[in-house]
Design a protein around this nucleic acid. Structure first.
Lengths: 316, 316
DNA sequence: GTGAAAGCGCTAACAA
DNA sequence: TTGTTAGCGCTTTCAC
């Protein structure tokens, strides 16, 4: 018991005793066993977080910040990868919860029924990210995907494009952005924008170059496209360049995310900026508050911003 | 005890009993406590892995594969982020080992003295990635960074460039590639290539555009550059375009990693291909073998490949 | 400032 | 096929 105190609450132990314990630790190579500790104390200082993919720069900015902030309070973050699949999230949750994390961070607000049940039974703080809803499981930090889609549509229209199309992966958030985009078109009394959806099998797949061929076949009249990510849009740019389509004159290209490479596109890529790091930061803070016992309800809308650059700057 | 068996070894339990246990689980919302389980059984089915950054596509390809393969054998992977700092790795190790992982995966072969001590004391399988050494702590899966640097130099020379320079972040692997590059120049009897190093503070920092300005000032005579990553090289491409430098005629640009966006560069980016997924796969297999009790020594050199594309295709 | 007792929830080992 | 016993390594609680 004294040894335990010397390690965790050194102020409660006599200097001499502490020194003896430290010497013994050093000499024996002792490493405490937090399984045993967690079993007794009922807290693990573990936060379990799951994202669709670690390759995506938005998620990695978010993670970097989340992990960093939690670290300052001595919480460790363990990571799951869902590959945009709610069943994978469910399986991950089922095994993860047996490690008794002190908090959980999820991507999105769509979860299987069992996931919800597990989560609610666990009785720990939960943060849902990247989407906004007034009725989260517990805490939510995100923005309205539908509004983002609307904003993209409005931007393209404002730039003078008449037939904007959609190019996106099949993840559900991109789907909701597309929905907002199409609704905005509808409200304008325009025909429904053509939409090309490809499977998000892996981060490399469905690259702009290949999918653009499909788009140009299916919608030869399209004069602008809103892509579900910047890297996709960059691929589209490359394809347009290859087939001699002038951007932005003949084709407007808009990305999503405002990753650093968007600026490096030729021409520089117009995009919707989302602050991944900010989401991670707010999520970490909210989670810490909850784990401290704070029960005030939290729902944070971090918003997004339209970034006009050369790729949609049509000279009329 | 019977309940425990019904959940983990259902074949050892009568059908009727198993059903009763399952019903009870369902009804009570029981979730097993693997802290207690691990305490008794002395295995946690946890693998702890640390990478410098999750944003980098090479690491994320590797992680995806590592996590995926370990998952098939019901091992979970928990992730640390070192930000290229051995002290952060040490701190992560110190707290991580108290969770008693069954195996550890590290990036690189450079670790602090205490890290080494902790690791060796822990008595668990260790895999070091991305570098090759004949004398690993336990298992190593990687390639020779120095040879990679040499290969880049040779490629640029073979393309007809006479004054290749180096543009790199301050991570130690990029440093070893630079070393190989400079040694190859020396062996050719050429002057030492100019080298611009910038801090790897965060994945967004030190972007090609900004650093290129410095390079062109410090080495106006440079007619080719070898960048420490593809995204950096893409930034360099954008900068060259902006200042009217013709690539590949006036400036050869070479990246590292062969990320999918390298092909989308304008012009397409020459690079050194490294198979992150393969490294992750081999690492997972090696670790599984070790955790199964296999003690044969393992050191795998996965090699790399030079990918010539338009950005170094100088027409002489 | 230190220590003794008890128990967290599970599984290894053995017994029936 | 099921059950009993013991103990994993800590921390909570309480006594000194």
């Amino acid at each position: 018991m004294t040894a335990s105190r010397a390690l965790h609450r050194p102020d409660l132990v006599a200097e001499a005793t502490r020194l003896r314990v430290e010497a013994a630790v050093e000499q024996t190579g002792y490493v405490s066993n937090s399984l045993a500790g967690g079993l007794t104390s009922r807290q693990t200082r573990l936060v379990a977080a799951i994202v669709p993919s670690v390759g995506h720069s938005l998620f990695s900015d978010m993670l970097d910040e989340l992990v960093g902030v939690l670290e300052t309070e001595r919480y460790e973050t363990t990571l799951g990868i869902s590959r945009y699949d709610p069943m994978r999230e469910e399986n991950w949750l089922a095994t993860m919860l047996s490690r008794r994390p002190d908090g959980v961070v999820l991507t999105g607000i769509e979860h299987t029924a069992r996931s919800r049940r597990l989560l609610l039974n666990a009785g720990i703080p939960i943060v849902e990210l990247w989407d906004y809803t007034p009725h989260p499981l517990d805490v939510v930090v995100g923005f309205s995907q539908e509004d983002a889609g609307r904003a993209a549509y409005r931007h393209l229209k404002a730039c003078g494009y008449r037939r904007p199309a959609l190019l996106r992966s099949d993840d559900s958030r991109a789907g909701r952005r597309a929905l907002g985009f199409k609704r905005a078109a509808q409200e304008d009394g325009e025909p429904e924008p053509v939409e090309i959806v490809f499977p998000e099998t892996n981060p490399q797949a469905g690259r702009g170059r290949e999918v653009m061929t499909v788009l140009l076949q299916r919608a030869p009249e399209a004069d602008a496209i809103f892509c579900s990510s910047d890297s996709l849009a960059l691929g589209a740019l490359a394809h347009a360049h290859a087939v001699g389509l002038k951007v932005p004159e003949q084709l407007g290209v808009m990305g999503f995310g405002n990753q650093s490479l968007a600026e490096d596109g030729v021409p520089a890529l117009s995009t919707l900026a989302v602050d991944g790091a900010k989401i991670g930061n707010q999520a970490a803070r909210a989670l810490l508050a909850r784990m401290r016992g704070d029960t005030a309800s939290i729902a944070i809308d971090v918003g997004f911003e339209t970034i006009p650059r050369a790729s949609t700057h049509k000279k009329r």
